[in-house]
């Protein structure tokens, strides 16, 4: 981090800079320290469950506090499916919204939509949960699910009674929640594409779509992936909203109408009243699993970005 300019400065402010650099380093060090601390605590507090269930914890569907038999599979499945539904809906929608705001909308409208999106991002997740339970779930059970059941019931995904709550509803609520993140971050990166490049593309007769595809998206790829992973992180860990609408059942069902659970919802539901050491330990291990899943996704994203960068360069 040596900067040549420093040498030209007077001695006093040089010392100040050095002090500042050390202070900044100390502040920055809190991040790895926090991370190591969290992993350490998670492992330490889940050692009972690690010892008792071993690797089988990840492959067992059991979750029985009475007989003290615990497994993470149904929670992991629920986390994966609800996140997948959310990403499938929110990613394309978010990107298109951002494109519209940057490329197509008149500036005034764009500013209005922009602040609306930021407002959406600021809504606490419990509000989404309550709204999901009291407003959206009845809507799902009265309109959306009967319709899906009528036309798509040859797929096991859309079979079963339309209760309104369950995996599909949880996924859609999650999509609403991560949409503002995706669209606002993507909008910002789209705006950073140098206008002169876009203008030259238009100059040689490219259409709106061609400019978007060949210039804007290419320039913004990194940012778009960043937005997607920010959203993914939020969807994986989202707790309250999911807990309200997912149905909270430790089961793996083929139908998206059926209730399920996610890692975060299980923790939210059961942590406060878990007093048996092994029960508590299994819950902490669930937290560890979630942490590792998030970590693996982040690492994969970094690797992928790195390989793209090399290819483009």
């Amino acid at each position: 981090m040596e900067i040549g300019l420093q040498k030209a400065n007077s001695k006093g402010s040089y010392r100040g800079d050095r002090l500042f650099r050390r202070l900044a380093l100390c502040c920055a060090l809190t991040i790895p320290l926090l991370m190591i601390g969290i992993v350490f605590e998670l492992v330490r507090n889940s050692r009972l469950s690690l010892a008792q269930f071993g690797f089988g914890f990840l492959t067992s569907k059991a979750w029985n506090p009475v007989t003290q038999d615990f497994g993470a599979l149904s929670s992991m499945y629920g986390t994966a499916v609800s996140t997948l539904i959310a990403m499938l809906i929110a990613l394309p929608l978010g990107f298109v919204i951002a494109l519209f705001l940057v490329e197509l909308a008149p500036p005034r409208l764009s500013a209005f939509f922009g602040s609306a999106i930021e407002l959406l991002a600021a809504i606490p997740s419990i509000i989404y949960g309550m709204w999901g339970l009291f407003v959206f779930a009845p809507f799902m059970s009265n309109f959306v699910q009967p319709l899906l059941g009528k036309y798509l019931d040859f797929l096991p995904l859309f079979q079963g009674p339309p209760l309104g709550i369950g995996m599909l509803t949880a996924g859609i609520i999650l999509a609403f929640m991560i949409l503002p993140y995706i669209s606002s971050v993507t909008r910002d990166v789209f705006q950073m594409v140098p206008p002169v490049v876009k203008e030259s593309a238009y100059g040689i007769g490219a259409t709106n779509w061609e400019v978007t595809k060949a210039v804007t998206m290419r320039y913004s790829l990194r940012g778009m992936v960043g937005a997607a992973f920010l959203a993914l992180g939020r969807a994986l860990g989202e707790t309250m909203a999911v807990t309200f609408v997912i149905g909270n059942n430790h089961q793996i069902a083929a139908s998206l109408f059926a209730s399920g659970n996610s890692i975060a919802s299980t923790l939210a539901n059961e942590f406060t009243e878990a007093s048996d050491p092994i029960y508590l330990s299994a819950l902490v291990e669930l937290g560890l699993v979630l942490f590792l899943i998030t970590f693996v996704f982040q690492a994969a994203a970094q690797l992928w970005l790195w390989s793209i960068k090399k290819k483009l360069a």
Binding site: N64, T67, F244, N249, E273
Partner: peptide, 22 residues
């Protein structure tokens, strides 16, 4: 069996009394 949370054979779970009543 009986406990603060059990492995329910059937049904949907609401969070808290407010969740169940909803």
């Amino acid at each position: 069996g009986a406990d603060k949370s059990v492995a329910w054979p059937v049904g949907n779970g609401g969070k808290g009394n407010e969740g169940v009543s909803a």
